[in-house]
Nucleic acid binder design. Sequence first.
DNA 1: TTTATATACGACTAAATCAGTCTTATTTAT
DNA 2: ATAAATAAGACTGATTTAGTCGTATATAAA
Lengths: 135, 135
Amino acid sequence: MLKLSKKTEYAFMAARHLALNNSGHYSTAKEIAENYRIPYQLVAKVLQNFTKSEIVTSFQGAKGGYKLNRSPDNISLIDIIKAVEHNYQVTECMQQNNSRSTCSHLDCCKIRDPLIEIQRKIENVFEQTSLKQIL
Amino acid sequence: MLKLSKKTEYAFMAARHLALNNSGHYSTAKEIAENYRIPYQLVAKVLQNFTKSEIVTSFQGAKGGYKLNRSPDNISLIDIIKAVEHNYQVTECMQQNNSRSTCSHLDCCKIRDPLIEIQRKIENVFEQTSLKQIL
DNA sequence: TTTATATACGACTAAATCAGTCTTATTTAT
DNA sequence: ATAAATAAGACTGATTTAGTCGTATATAAA
Ligand code: SF4
Ligand code: SF4
């Protein structure tokens, strides 16, 4: 319960790696996978998610790779989470996938409002932490 | 990811119910299960966990049930979570079950320290919210 | 003393989620 | 052309979660 997914942890590692790269060449999925002993395919997916969310710019082909679009102090952990995770909410009824919220308790539920406030505060924790702070 | 378990939600509901009970008789698992349409066995387990954590006192037998040991403003959501959940940590390496931490990245992991801080802040969110606040 | 009502507790199963792999296509520097 | 890299989706196995079942024990009241 409350655990971050491995995907999110890999996303933090990858973002951190990109932020520290000042070698001139673009960082690649392969490089990150080897450096942190992460399955290549998973890092690749994470970086593709970053591209879609415009956290990075990708360059295809040989000598290709990824570079950050913004400075690390202008990227928050919630940006990274939102890039790779569809659902990061504390309850089912706050998740976006369930087209029409599927929780059978929704009508008689008395704890939903307080939990919405909890959700707001937890998101705030990630919002207030920048990539720069975890370098 | 980051979702609370149903067990924890049921625990919040049950604790809330106990806090609102001023009917003279002790609240029972059956009563709570019916009131909130929760599976009886699950509420029963939650209440047994409460007893072990000394959040409530239990009374066995006919006319038995449960009563809160402390006033609702003296019980925090983290007390309730700790009563019913073994693992409520954001990473594997912070969980207590894994006898000797099982994460293969532990040695080369650069994000662990920042995540320990995140964990502290999230626990703080639940610590700072009392049962009274969710009535 | 029997019955009904309640807590206590552990084993088991089914469903859902997560982590990781496999495969194929496309792009681009050399 | 070739090698190196991103892009993307399908698939599988492992783990976690939610819920059920069965049995034992305690106690109020008929
Ligand atoms: S409606 Fe209530 S029980 Fe259902 S997911 Fe939302 S908070 Fe939880
Ligand atoms: S050691 Fe690092 S990768 Fe492993 S669980 Fe802890 S934070 Fe996550």
